[in-house]
Write a protein that binds this DNA or RNA. Structure first.
Length: 207
DNA sequence: CGCTCGATATTCT
DNA sequence: GAATATCGAGCGA
């Protein structure tokens, strides 16, 4: 395993994976949720005047819509909390929940929709695993679950609204690995819209 | 491994 | 005042 740089399993060096541009997110929210599987979520953490790269492969997502989705924070219209869901696509929507946790979403919707976001439910850690473990206070489960993803990558409310389509951003998403198949299920922890099958899990991620 | 349960504070009604 | 897009501890198998 190498230190720093772009860590992939292949022996051949490869150029930096491309940062996903705005147009990637301008599509049906559930399609973007599927397309995000296998992509690399990169967090550039500033520590001791250095940039520490924390990254992982997106393994599980959920889509949240608008009027079509009673489980969505956007369902009842704009509020202070959910305003990012109504804003530009390709930005973060980070909210605080259950008195303890942050959840990381990426805004995504087609041109004709007013609100939508994709919740990142889990990633497979790639770079900066040691730092992530520290940020997680050495808990057992590193990045499985939305609250854990946020904590492992040190993402908080401060990042709400952040544009993630810039390579220079503290947080960005990049081309990544191949996903052989996708499991589709109902979403976790919702009490309304329970039958909407908008949870997506990557199967057999590979190069 | 699985299940149940309490913590916790922001947001919305 | 109620609900919540959750987590981890504790327990049993």
């Amino acid at each position: 395993m190498s230190r720093g740089g772009y860590l992939f399993v292949t022996s051949q060096p490869r150029s930096a994976p491309k940062c996903l541009k705005r147009s990637f997110y301008e599509d049906n929210t559930e399609d973007v949720a599927k397309n995000l599987l296998g992509k690399i979520l990169l967090r550039r953490l500033i520590s001791n005047r250095r940039i520490v790269r924390l990254s992982g492969c997106i393994a599980e997502t959920e889509a949240y819509g608008y009027r079509n989705d009673p489980a969505s924070h956007a369902f009842s219209g704009v509020s202070i909390r959910n305003s990012a869901m109504f804003g530009e696509v390709g930005c973060l929507y980070v909210y605080f929940t259950y008195g303890k946790h942050f959840c990381v979403n990426v805004t995504a919707k087609n041109k004709h929709t007013e609100a939508g976001a994709v919740l990142i439910r889990s990633i497979m850690p790639i770079e900066g695993v040691g730092r992530m473990r520290k940020l997680r206070n050495y808990s057992k489960n590193l990045t499985l679950g939305p609250g854990r993803v946020a904590e492992a990558l040190a993402i908080t409310k401060d990042h709400n609204g952040l544009d993630i389509t810039l390579d220079s951003s503290e947080i960005s998403v990049h081309e990544g690995l191949h996903v052989r198949d996708i499991i589709t299920t109902r979403r976790v922890g919702v009490s309304k819209g329970v039958d909407i099958p908008w949870r997506f899990i990557a199967v057999q991620i590979r190069n």
